[in-house]
Amino acid sequence: MSIIIRKDQWINLAIIASTLWFIWFASSHFDEYTVRILNNIAIFTILAVSYNLINGVTGQFSLEPNGFVAIGAYVTALLLLDGDAKSYQFDIEDPYPWVLALHANFIWALFFAGLFSALLALTLSFPVFRVRGDYLAIVTLGFGFIIRILAINNPEITNGSLGLNDIPEFSNLYWTGGIALLAVWGILNIVNSKFGRAMKAVRDDEDAAIAMGVNTFKIKTFAFCTSAFLEGVGGGLLAALLTSISPDLFTFFFTFQLLIIIVLGGLGSTTGAVIGTVLVIGGAEWMRFLDEPMNFGFFETPALPGMRMVVFSVILIFVMLFAREGIMGKRELKDLFKKAKK
């Protein structure tokens, strides 16, 4: 390897350095509300870039995030709560002894959250990737419901519909921002390798990819399991940020939000996924006014809970029909610099 640092590497270093500086600055200067939104943005960045890997880069339509985020959140919560804290809060049924025995520090908890999600994704890969067709979408949609049903019906593990509370609040901007940075780096490394090329080939033309000797089952499974791993980790960070979780937290709206993020940013672009996250998570905060009563001076509309969701779905349909490429198309940051040079 040469020691001379190329231009794009300088740009990358500058981005990493300024992100780290921003994390430090925000944690020490911003108020609690802003920091909470920044934490959300960091976690959703992890989720969006990994969701984009299976949907945008590999082109396999999937609706998995809420399921795997739920798994990650529960695994992390069960590992972070110690035996006493668990036996104290399990009100519906007594927890199994092995549930009480589970305990790990934050980093291992996040790792196991990811690993467990990835293993479940691996199991789902066999029924859905061995056949042609968009079964991944419907199976992952169902999977989200099943996880909820399992969480409600196994109070010995999950405390049922009451959920888990008093989870130690380990997440902060250093954790969420740091892992987000690592996730973006890892995903970009995959995209810019033979695996990423094969994923794009599967998206563009699956038959032609096979004719090039690409094992498409393996490639789709890699993409899906990687997404699931990071979604599990993201769920763990979320659990340690919110400090209490319940089955109703991880509804389909969670997945829908991520879908809008990656579609708006440009399906297939990791840079786009990051931009989409900032826009949608920031925008969702701002759009809270839609659900509330509105005063136009001369008349006042009643509160319309759910109006925000209507606006979200209209945005999604609109982007698909009239601006299918989203903001970035399939381009990345480095492609923009290339254009600028010409």
């Binding site: 090329r197 794009k200 990819a209 690409v214």
Partner: peptide
């Protein structure tokens, strides 16, 4: 592969 450069198209052949 329609989203890819000529080079990347050929590189897919080297995948395995």
């Amino acid at each position: 592969f329609k989203s890819m450069s000529v080079m990347d198209n050929v590189l897919i052949g080297f995948d395995f």
